[in-house]
Design a protein around this nucleic acid. Structure first.
Lengths: 106, 106
DNA sequence: AACTTGCGCAACCGAAAAGTTGCGTTTATA
DNA sequence: TATAAACGCAACTTTTCGGTTGCGCAAGTT
């Protein structure tokens, strides 16, 4: 069973869950209410999120509150870095082109 | 068949392909050589990448060069934005705590 | 003109994922 | 103490995914 952050965010429901529990901890039932799906389905998603360490749980009585471990999201950010470098370079290259054109107009 | 960028980057081989064609356009065969996989498998990945508009193709004779459309990667970056806001806030909060502790030591 | 190469496409297959159902357990409530 | 609520877990079903095989086609080569 291969589990990584990229697979975790592949599912749209999971992305929505992540978006919600990023702001505040929530219970599976509370989450299920938001998405027109069953508690069990949400529970399974939470299990997956737990497996790739994207989520923290806190037990309060019979309720379990899940919250996002935001730092883990940095892994995606880190992977994106290489491309960010590229699109910024291309942008600055375009910038150069524009400057040159401007100069040639003089 | 619903295809989005997040699903595209879920597969590790696809991420590797993306990493390569970000730098320079490559043919399916050239890509296949890098990954110890068949041309057809790569071709299928490229098809998926094309479907979610992550890739550009350029035909040169009987060869087809594929290149990443880097701008599309910004979609991921944009989604990450909300979390970046959170982890930066938390970090600065931690920063505050550290400052306070430092002051109390005096 | 025959042959090779580079490719896409469609059909197929096995494995994994997503969702559903039905438990059992723990905690709260009547 | 009986009942209800909140959950996890395991079994099962359906769908999707990644890969392979086998075409066919167009572009070069001999």
């Amino acid at each position: 069973m291969r589990r990584d952050v990229f697979q975790a965010i592949a599912d749209p429901t999971r992305r929505a869950i992540i978006g919600l529990i990023a702001l505040q901890a929530m219970t599976p039932n509370a989450l299920a209410e938001q998405f027109d799906t069953t508690r069990q389905a949400v529970s399974k998603h939470l299990r997956i999120l737990t497996e790739c360490e994207l989520v923290q749980q806190e037990n309060r009585g019979r309720e379990i509150y899940y919250q996002l471990k935001v730092e883990k999201m940095k892994e995606i950010d880190h992977w994106l870095e290489q491309f960010r470098a590229i699109w910024e370079t291309r942008f600055s290259q375009l910038d150069e082109v524009l400057k040159t054109m401007k100069n040639e107009q003089k």
